[in-house]
């Protein structure tokens, strides 16, 4: 039973990591590309680390807490680096595929 759960978590994590990098390689402008790897860093590595925590907690004595540290650190730092990357792209004036907002008369 535990083995099935572990296999499912590992496969889900690897699939999300792959999809994140696929988005990074395939999407067409920088602001959409920024969206892809966030899945890899939260869902992908998160699933893998949960699987690893389960694996090492059931295998040896005591609960394995190293993974929680890595997960916490990644979840805290991912939004910061994404924010800084978006700021750098805006500063350099990269073009976006989205049309510019239209002027509407204010009511």
């Amino acid at each position: 039973m535990l083995e099935y759960l572990l296999s499912f978590l590992i496969l889900a994590g690897a699939l999300f990591t792959f999809v994140g990098s696929l988005g990074l390689a395939r999407l067409r402008d920088f602001y959409t590309r920024l969206h892809g790897p966030t899945k890899a860093s939260t869902l992908g590595v998160g699933c893998l680390l949960i699987a690893s925590a389960l694996f090492f907690s059931t295998r040896s004595e005591g609960i394995s807490l190293h993974e929680v540290l890595v997960t916490l650190f990644l979840f805290i730092t991912a939004p910061i680096s994404a924010h800084l990357l978006a700021k750098a792209a805006l500063h350099l004036g990269l073009t976006s595929l989205a049309p510019p907002p239209e002027d509407k008369p204010r009511r």
Partner: peptide
């Protein structure tokens, strides 16, 4: 830079 960021996350995985 975004690709490097993704690469280190892949390395962790």
């Amino acid at each position: 830079i975004l690709a490097l960021d993704t690469l280190y996350i892949n390395a962790i995985a």
